[in-house]
C-alpha cells in the first residue's frame, strides 16, 4: 500500500528538486490528470506529494526574444489568451482554444499535459511542429542540473516519457517561427468541448514562392505516442501546394498513422479522419 508521508509546496526550485532527488515524489500541478487517475486507482501516490505551483519562476510566457519560453506551470488559459503567442505561434493558441472547458483550462498546466504523456495530449502536436524542446531539471552533485530534450524524443509510450523520477519539467522552449511560417491544428471528437481527441493533427511549414519547406506534420491518437509523420512530410517538402502534392501527402498518411480500435473510435475511422484533416489543413493553407 502506498501512503503519502509528506506534503510539500516549496517556493524555490532547488528545494523542490532536492525533495525529488530520491525519485519518491508525486508531482502535483493543476491536478486535472492526477486527481482522476489516483481516484480511480490507475495511479498510486508515492511517499511525497509535491505541489509545484508555488515555485518561483516556473510560470510565465516569454515570447519577445528569438527563443520562446513557456514555464511548466503556465495554464492552458494563459496560452489561449496570450497576445504575442497568438501572433507568432497561432497553431498553439488554436489547440488551447479547443482544449477541454474553461474551468479545466484555468487549472490545467502545459507541463502536466506533456508529462501525462497521453497519445491524445492536445498541446503536443502543435509543439512538435514548432520544433519545441523540454527543459528537465534535477538536483545532482549538490547543484541544479538541467538538460534539454527535443519533444519528439520525450515520449516513450502512453503515460511514459524519458523524464527520470527525480526530474522536473521546468519549461518548454522553441525558436521563434520565421515570418513565413504557417501552422494549423485540427482535432476531433463527438462534441466540440470536453473531448479527448479521437485524432489530432498539426501542420507547420514555411512557404515561400509557392514552395513548402521545413515541413512538419504531427499527429495525436494514431499511435502509442504523438508522432511526427515523416512520410507525409517527405511528400510535401520542397513541393508546391497543388492537387498532386496534396494527394501524395494524403496517401502517405497510411505509412505514418497506425491507429488502434478503442472505445473512442475504430482504427478505420481514425485513419479516415487523418486523411480528411490533412487534406483540410493543406487546402486551408493553399486557400490563403
Amino acid at each position: 500500500m502506498n501512503e503519502i508521508e509528506q506534503y510539500l509546496a516549496p517556493r524555490r526550485l532547488d528545494e523542490a528538486l532536492q525533495a525529488m532527488a530520491n525519485g519518491d515524489a508525486t508531482v502535483l500541478c493543476g491536478g486535472t490528470d492526477l486527481a482522476p487517475q489516483t481516484e480511480s486507482g490507475a495511479r498510486q501516490y508515492t511517499a511525497k506529494l509535491l505541489n509545484i505551483r508555488r515555485i518561483d519562476g516556473l510560470g510565465g510566457i516569454a515570447a519577445e526574444t528569438d527563443q520562446v519560453r513557456i514555464g511548466a506551470v503556465t495554464t492552458i488559459s494563459e496560452i489561449r489568451c496570450h497576445p504575442a503567442l497568438a501572433e507568432i505561434a497561432p497553431v498553439l493558441v488554436e489547440a488551447a482554444e479547443h482544449f477541454a472547458s474553461e474551468q479545466i483550462r484555468n487549472a490545467a498546466s502545459l507541463g502536466g499535459n506533456l508529462c501525462n504523456a497521453s497519445p491524445a495530449g492536445d498541446m503536443i502536436p502543435p509543439l512538435l511542429v514548432l520544433g519545441a524542446s523540454v527543459e528537465l531539471a534535477c538536483w545532482r552533485g549538490g547543484a541544479v542540473q538541467t538538460r534539454l530534450i527535443p519533444l519528439e524524443r520525450f515520449f516513450v509510450s502512453p503515460g511514459k516519457t524519458v523524464k527520470l523520477p527525480e526530474e522536473l519539467l521546468t519549461a518548454v522552449v522553441f525558436d521563434r517561427p520565421a515570418a513565413d511560417f504557417v501552422g494549423k491544428f485540427r482535432k476531433s471528437g463527438p462534441r466540440p468541448a470536453l473531448e479527448i481527441s479521437t485524432v489530432s493533427l498539426a501542420l507547420g511549414a514555411r512557404i515561400a514562392d509557392g514552395l513548402l519547406s521545413n515541413v512538419r506534420v504531427a499527429m495525436g491518437s494514431v499511435a502509442p505516442t504523438p508522432l511526427r509523420a515523416r512520410h507525409v512530410e517527405a511528400a510535401l517538402e520542397g513541393k508546391p501546394l497543388d492537387a498532386a502534392s496534396i494527394a501524395a501527402a494524403v496517401a502517405a498518411t497510411a505509412e505514418d498513422a497506425k491507429p488502434i480500435d478503442d472505445v473512442r473510435a475504430s482504427a478505420w475511422y481514425r485513419s479516415h479522419l487523418v486523411r480528411v484533416f490533412l487534406e483540410e489543413v493543406l487546402n486551408d493553407v493553399r486557400g490563403n
Binding site: 506534503y7 509546496a9 502535483l28 493543476g30 491536478g31 486535472t32 486527481a35 482522476p36 506529494l49 505541489n51 505551483r53 488559459s77 474553461e102 474551468q103 479545466i104 484555468n106 487549472a107
Partner: peptide, 14 residues
C-alpha cells in the same frame, strides 16, 4: 478564476 473544485486538491487552496 473558475475551476472544477472536484479536481482541485484542497491543499492547493492554501
Amino acid at each position: 478564476k473558475t475551476v472544477n473544485s472536484c479536481l482541485m486538491y484542497a491543499v492547493d487552496c492554501d
